[in-house]
């Protein structure tokens, strides 16, 4: 590699990632415009569904890689502002509405009241995006999102009615957040770790945010819970 590239690799990364984002965005926009088929799924239709799902996943992976890279370089922006959680969740649900309809998944918001929280809007939206796309992928047909306010802070809980996480995946996650077990890291595990990092950047005095994965879903599948102080 030329010395120019070595010294300026930062720009190489940023330019490439922006380009990847741009092209995946266009793909997604095109997919949104393709009309949904009838209830009976043709082969073409189910190909489209997997393309749509993969594009959504790709979008999140690129964003995640980009942000982890910036975090590593100590250049990730982190700005806390007051925001309504239902607004953020609503946006994410809407963003995946076409995908949901394609795969036949309904997302229910069971929260009774909106809660204002102090958080980094861009990072939290991205975490919700990752968790929701994953829940859509593994649920049978329903995803449920709830908010819980406690004295210490707020939790967002995303449940699905799929088969739940395999035990070894839950173990691997708990090792990773202890800073162990990075070998054999899958992209999925990396995504959960990224969510955990974003949560833990949110601090208030002695409190710190966290992410918990479990099979305690109210719908009998897996549960993703993020806590923000």
């Amino acid at each position: 590699m030329s010395s120019f590239m070595k010294n300026d690799f930062h720009h190489v990364m940023i330019a490439s990632m922006n380009d990847m984002k741009q092209s995946v965005n266009l793909l997604q926009h095109t997919l949104e415009k393709i009309p949904l088929g009838d209830t009976e799924k043709s082969e073409e239709e189910s190909d489209l569904t997997s393309i749509h799902y993969e594009v959504s996943r790709m979008q999140n992976s690129i964003g995640q890689l980009h942000n982890l890279y910036l975090l590593e370089k100590n250049q990730l922006s982190f700005q806390l502002t007051d925001a309504y959680l239902l607004e953020l969740i609503e946006e994410q649900v809407i963003a995946h509405d076409v995908l949901c309809r394609r795969v036949g998944v309904t997302i229910n918001l069971v929260a009774k009241h909106d809660i204002s929280s102090y958080l980094d809007v861009n990072l939290l939206s991205h975490v919700l995006d990752i968790a929701i796309v994953n829940a859509i992928r593994y649920s049978k047909d329903t995803v449920q999102i709830d908010l819980q306010k406690t004295q210490q802070g707020t939790s967002i809980i995303i449940d699905d009615n799929g088969r739940g996480y395999p035990e070894e995946r839950l173990e691997h996650f708990s090792e990773i957040i202890k800073g162990q077990g990075f070998s054999g890291l899958t992209n999925q595990m990396l995504a959960w770790y990224y969510c955990y990092l974003v949560a833990s950047m949110h601090k208030s005095r002695e409190q710190q945010g966290w992410v918990r994965l479990s099979n305690e879903s109210a719908l009998g599948g897996s549960r993703f819970e993020i806590f923000l102080p």
Partner: peptide, 15 residues
């Protein structure tokens, strides 16, 4: 932040 869908844009503008 890009990407955003028409639904998201619609909600944002409404808000």
């Amino acid at each position: 932040s890009k990407p955003f869908t028409q639904g998201v844009l619609s909600k944002r503008l409404e808000r």
